[in-house]
């Protein structure tokens, strides 16, 4: 008798044989399921794992958390970061201020491309030094060509800036009103807050980097490795959705210094404060007395890649 269940067999299988084969198949499927469950069970933290890991594993999306849960998570993170950086780290979860929509202005007639903003941002927002992550890119453009991004130089390094015949255009997250990065996130780990800041829940991000592909401004950055952040340089004033230390495998971006600007009174973002030429302006778009409103109403203003209909809250302007 030939082997049962062999598809190469000449004789067609009887009903009984087929049924038996199905039973075999079903049991194999069951076996695979069992195996997968077993592997899964191995992957999740065991009983000996610390409570921290368990809580991390079971944590919900930030927007689904109750206030009490947020407080518990913050206390856990503060403990974890304080131990890691050997200093008293504070993690805030300050909500948006009512009646505030942040707007940013950047004066292209003033910027000299000195990159003080880039490093001011790195210091304030705890970006990784090695491997290097920088949220602001300063582009060097030719005056003759105007805002022509195809001919932008990103690695310029003359002895002194501004280099003759050139102007500079810093690019960072534009906090779009219609953010493509938010639209593509498969797990809703990134969203736009009521004050207009696009934030990321680093504990919910799965690291698929769809948002990076979707962002037309190159404003999102990925943590390929563990952040090289020296304890001495770590800024202990942090926000859950902002500059707290990021784990490996998540995406991060500019948050208009959420840990500074959401306070009452709110400081200017670090890049605004550090700029030596007063190129950078910041304020509330809903306040008719704010600097940013004055700029929009009185200066020549443009938004970057307007044709993409992302509707940024970041305005480039020429004061003179």
């Amino acid at each position: 008798m030939k082997t049962r269940g062999n598809p190469q067999e000449d004789r067609p299988m009887s009903d009984t044989e087929t049924r038996e084969q199905r039973i075999f198949r079903l049991s194999r499927r069951k076996a695979l399921k069992g195996l997968a469950a077993g592997v899964g069970a191995l992957a999740i933290p065991g009983r000996k794992a610390s409570a921290l890991t368990w809580q991390d594993f079971l944590q919900k999306n930030f927007r689904e958390l109750t206030r009490a849960e947020v407080q518990t998570i913050i206390a856990r993170l503060e403990k974890e970061y304080s131990a890691r950086f050997k200093k008293d780290v504070k993690v805030k979860a300050t909500p948006p201020i009512e009646g505030v929509l942040y707007g940013y202005g950047l004066d292209l007639s003033r910027c000299i491309g000195c990159r003080r903003c880039v490093y001011g941002c790195v210091d304030e927002n705890n970006q990784s030094r090695d491997p290097q992550i920088q949220w602001i890119r300063v582009l060097q453009l030719e005056k003759e060509k105007g805002v022509d991004l195809e001919h932008a130089e990103y690695y310029y390094n003359p002895k002194e800036v501004p280099a003759p015949g050139h102007f500079y255009m810093p690019v960072q997250c534009q906090q779009c009103r219609l953010p493509p990065c938010v639209k593509v996130c498969p797990v809703q780990a990134t969203w736009k807050e009521n004050d207009g800041i696009v934030v990321v829940d680093y504990n919910w991000c799965i690291g698929c980097r769809y948002c990076m592909a979707a962002c037309p401004y190159g404003a999102r950055h990925f943590n390929w490795k563990k952040a090289g952040l020296p304890a001495g340089e770590m800024n202990p004033e942090t926000h859950y959705l902002g500059n707290r230390p990021r784990p490996v495998g998540v995406v991060e971006k500019c948050t208009f210094c959420i840990q500074r600007t959401r306070e009452q009174p709110g400081k200017y973002p670090a890049c605004v404060e550090v700029c030596p030429t007063g190129t950078r302006k910041f304020g509330n778009l809903l306040d008719p007395e704010s600097e940013i409103r004055y700029i929009i109403e009185n200066k020549r203003v443009f938004i970057l890649k307007e044709d993409l209909n992302t509707q940024p809250q970041f305005y480039y302007f020429y004061a003179t």
Binding site: I97, T261, P265, G266, K267, Y268, V272, G283, E291, Y294
Partner: peptide
């Protein structure tokens, strides 16, 4: 109005 030159302090305060 705070457009020319650098202004520091608080965006919604002093």
């Amino acid at each position: 109005v705070g457009v020319h030159g650098k202004r520091t302090g608080y965006w919604n305060g002093k």
